[in-house]
Computed example of a mutant assay.
Amino acid sequence: MNWTQFLLSIAAVYSLYYLFNILFDMIRSRGQPITDTSQDELVFSEETQPKQVGSDEPSPEPKSRQVISSGPLISTGGVRLQQLFALAQSEVIEYTKAIPY
């Protein structure tokens, strides 16, 4: 048995399997009566009134927190891929590995 015969036999087995499943579903669906789908609906009805949450008093000022800064952020913006290759060729930027295509 070579690879072509093997793959054709696997394809035939899968085709027969799916054909059997489709036919089985079609035969099974014929025997079931059509039912009203509104019976499957479950509804809960609760009448609730909205409540006001909070107080009328003004909130006190939050305590000041000490913030840790990592320094100023400096960014020159993004470049497109073609611009990146042009920068690498003109040796404006340094790259350590060859770029695979």
Rank of each mutant, 00 (worst) to 15 (best):
M1F: 14
M1V: 13
W3C: 02
W3M: 04
T4F: 12
T4N: 11
Q5M: 00
Q5S: 01
L8P: 03
I10V: 04
A11S: 13
A11T: 10
A11G: 11
A12C: 12
A12I: 12
Y14Q: 00
Y14P: 00
L16D: 06
L16C: 12
Y18W: 13
Y18S: 02
N21A: 02
I22T: 08
L23D: 01
D25L: 13
D25C: 08
I27A: 14
I27V: 15
S29Y: 11
Q32A: 07
P33G: 02
T35D: 01
T35S: 06
T37W: 03
S38F: 02
S38W: 03
D40R: 10
D40K: 12
D40M: 09
L42M: 09
V43Y: 07
E46S: 00
E47D: 14
T48E: 13
T48N: 15
Q49K: 15
K51F: 08
K51V: 12
Q52D: 14
Q52T: 15
V53R: 06
G54K: 01
G54W: 04
G54I: 02
D56T: 08
E57F: 14
P58T: 09
S59I: 07
S59M: 07
P60D: 04
E61F: 10
P62S: 04
P62F: 04
K63L: 07
S64M: 12
S64I: 13
R65C: 03
I68N: 12
S69N: 03
S70P: 06
S70E: 02
G71M: 03
P72F: 11
L73P: 03
I74R: 04
S75C: 05
T76Y: 15
T76K: 14
G77K: 01
G77L: 02
R80M: 09
R80N: 15
L81P: 07
L81E: 08
F85R: 07
A86R: 11
A86C: 09
A88C: 06
A88V: 10
A88E: 09
S90D: 11
E91G: 07
I93A: 04
Y95Q: 13
T96S: 15
K97Q: 07
K97Y: 10
A98V: 06
I99Q: 06
P100S: 00
Y101V: 11
